[in-house]
Amino acid sequence: MDSGETVRITHVGGPTALIEVGGWRLLTDPTFDPAGRRYFFGWGTSSRKLTGPAIAPGELGQIDAVLLSHDHHDDNLDAAGRALLPSAGTVVTTAAGARRLDGQVGATRGLEPWATTRLEGDGRLPIEITATPCRHGPPLSRPIVGDVVGFALRWAGQRDGALWITGDTVLCDGVLEVPRRIDVGTALVHLGGVRFPISGPLRYTLSAEEAVELCQLADPRTIVPIHYEGWKHFREGRAEAEAAFAHAPQLAPRVKWLPIGSPVELAV
């Protein structure tokens, strides 16, 4: 595999993906609990996990770094995922999350939006990681939902731009700023259109239509939907996303649905 031009991604389920590139093995938002349990997110919100991971933590092999969009919601970091963190080389997350995880994991790097860190290692391709803005709910919800970031990964040899993991977000000024500041080649887009009964029509992650609007602006070569299945609080799944992208003929051929549990190589 030419690590400068291709990347291998394994969608484990939910927001969890294994990204292999340039000698690195990176894991996003570790969620490995079995299905069935109900989780409480605070302020009267909760959800039940409907699907377990396609790969068990012990089957992953060594993880060099975890890209953790946020640590305080169990659909992005559950108990089994949290147990994995100490064995990972580095955890890159929000500044607030790094403070909460301090002393629980080996090396933690906390990033505010637009801050950058760098992964370097002998014989490996250096990777620059930029934290990108998210808003995980309606306006003024940050004190309730907490801090969340996405991640833009850049390395030498990328043909079309950064690998961008949006993180859990709605369409807001911060996330719309990303395509204006970063050339995006591949986008891992968190979907789901999350809503909760207690807050009615208010949305906490991208709807399919919002994802289309964001991708029209970012213009990525490849669009990889994730975090759209496996939880009861998701209001939109693959069918809704496929329908929305079908109405954007310039984007529809770029959407790549990864088979859950199987590695796929993508040109980046």
Rank of each mutant, 00 (worst) to 15 (best):
D102W: 10
T28E: 04
A211P: 00
D183Y: 00
G167S: 07
V12H: 01
E120R: 13
R195A: 12
V184R: 05
F40W: 15
P263I: 13
T117D: 14
G137M: 02
L84Q: 06
R38F: 13
T31W: 04
L27E: 03
V255T: 08
I19Q: 05
T93M: 11
E236S: 07
R235L: 12
L258H: 06
A252W: 02
G58K: 03
G58C: 08
P201I: 04
A208I: 01
D64G: 01
E112T: 13
E209T: 11
K232Y: 11
L84N: 05
G161S: 10
A115I: 04
T186S: 09
K256D: 06
R238T: 11
M1L: 11
A156T: 14
I129Q: 04
T132G: 05
V175K: 04
D160W: 11
D75F: 15
A54E: 08
G261E: 04
A35V: 04
L191K: 02
D29Q: 08
R221N: 13
R221C: 14
A252E: 14
W24M: 03
I63L: 08
D219F: 05
D74G: 03
G61N: 06
E20C: 10
P113A: 10
W231N: 02
D75H: 10
S207K: 01
F151P: 00
I223D: 06
L60P: 00
E236D: 08
V175F: 02
G261Y: 02
H70W: 15
S47Y: 11
T117G: 10
D183L: 12
D75K: 00
H227M: 04
W164M: 04
D147I: 09
R48Y: 09
Y39G: 05
V268G: 03
E209V: 05
A267W: 11
I55P: 00
L60A: 02
H227Q: 06
Q62D: 13
I182E: 08
C215F: 05
L251F: 09
G110H: 07
A107L: 14
H247G: 10
G137W: 01
T51I: 14
D219Q: 12
A95V: 07
Q104N: 06
Q216E: 15
F234H: 14
V12S: 00
G230W: 03
G44V: 12
R203V: 14
I223V: 13
F40Q: 13
T117V: 06
P220W: 11
A115E: 15
L176P: 00
K49D: 02
G81I: 02
V7I: 15
A162W: 09
A156W: 09
A239R: 13
L26V: 09
P179G: 02
A56V: 03
I165K: 01
A35T: 03
E236R: 03
V148H: 15
W155Q: 03
L60D: 02
T94I: 11
L176R: 12
T108H: 02
P15H: 09
F40L: 11
E59M: 08
S262H: 08
G81W: 05
L171R: 01
V12Y: 01
T222R: 14
G167C: 07
L50H: 05
G23A: 07
G52D: 02
G61E: 07
A83N: 10
R142M: 12
G58W: 07
D160C: 10
